[in-house]
Amino acid sequence: MTTAICAGRVAVVTGAGRGLGRAHALAFAAEGAKIVVNDLGVGLDGTGRASGPAQQVVDEIRALGGEAVAHDGDITTTEGAASLVSVAVDTFGRLDTLVNNAGFLRDRMLVNLDEDDWDAVMRVHLKGHFLPLKHAAAHWRAETKAGRTPEARVINTSSGAGLLGSVGQGNYAAAKAGIVGLTLVASAEMARYGVQVNAIAPAARTRMTEQTFADSMAAPEGGVFDAMAPENVSPLVVWLGSSASAGVTGRVFEAEAGRITVMEGWRPGPTADKGARWTPAEAGGAALRLLAAAGAPGPVYGAR
């Protein structure tokens, strides 16, 4: 059942040729949004390039009566990110929602992680969030200065790996943690321009998870609820990308199966204040007492 919650809005979704991005694009279109479908068509490790996946999603949306256009620019470059915004404005006359979703994996244990693999994952996940956000923000700031303050929305894609850590994914976990920090800063800086910025930490079956977590990500048989279907995450993303989410910004949501969780990040816990400088031994003793009173952190994914 659709409610046209995004009627009249224009949404850009990066990495929308497959997996979560495709599900988001189709869900936005079903709710009345016009879509810019960005995807380079790269392999799981970020190599190669093909325009097919983006165009296929555009064709799906159009076949269902929606409006969409493909964008195959590299959003980790200034030119590609700028053109992402200009394609939305030139094609549909406006930009209302940006969903940063593009990413790939190059998993290694830290001692085996090459510098190139670190840089590549940081580039697509973290820089690939920053540059579209920067250029969209510049557009919305210009709109505000022209007297047309938007009801703009940004949804960034973090991960449980970024919130808790994940063995064998040091580059990916660091990038996803960085996306949370970027979300908080953008939310504070961009509020004056009518922009709300939130992040999701989704768990779903995609190319990045169906091999790493093969058992838990397998699709069930016999009409049983498919808990790991990427389509389960999209309703929250669509709501966050709509004007109905007014007042919600700077938050991180975990979305998995039929569950939505508001994640509560770093905040002060037990504290000790001597009122003067500690000796190392005193600091250690205080730290141990504080740790005994603090809650235990969540387990790192893959830890034994």
Rank of each mutant, 00 (worst) to 15 (best):
A204D: 04
E210G: 00
E60P: 06
A88I: 06
Q56M: 09
G160Y: 00
G8A: 06
G147E: 08
W239C: 06
A218Y: 03
R277C: 00
L240R: 04
V99G: 03
T76K: 02
L126C: 07
G52N: 13
A120K: 05
F225D: 14
T271F: 06
G17Q: 06
G15Y: 00
G17M: 06
P235T: 13
V89K: 03
D96M: 07
E151N: 14
V197Q: 08
G52F: 09
G284A: 15
A294T: 11
G178Q: 09
E31R: 10
L26E: 15
N101M: 02
A293T: 03
G269A: 07
T91G: 08
H129C: 15
R62L: 01
G222Y: 09
R192N: 06
A23I: 03
V238T: 14
S166P: 01
G194M: 10
A292Q: 12
W118V: 04
L20G: 11
V252P: 02
A296R: 13
F213L: 15
K176D: 03
T77S: 15
A81M: 12
A272R: 08
S216Q: 14
L288I: 06
T271D: 11
H71L: 07
G285R: 14
T249Y: 05
G181T: 03
T212W: 01
A276K: 14
N198A: 15
E189V: 08
F253Y: 15
A229D: 15
L182K: 10
G93Y: 06
P297E: 11
V300A: 04
V154M: 13
A102T: 05
D72A: 13
A7L: 07
G265Q: 00
P235M: 05
K274P: 00
A16M: 03
V300Q: 10
F104W: 03
N232P: 07
N101W: 02
A246F: 05
S166Q: 15
M217K: 04
T78F: 06
V238L: 11
S86D: 15
M228H: 06
A136Q: 04
W239V: 03
T14L: 09
A174E: 02
S166A: 15
A70D: 01
M109D: 01
V121H: 01
D116T: 14
A4M: 13
L26K: 12
M122V: 07
A287E: 08
Y301K: 12
M109A: 11
H135R: 05
T76Q: 09
H24K: 01
V262T: 12
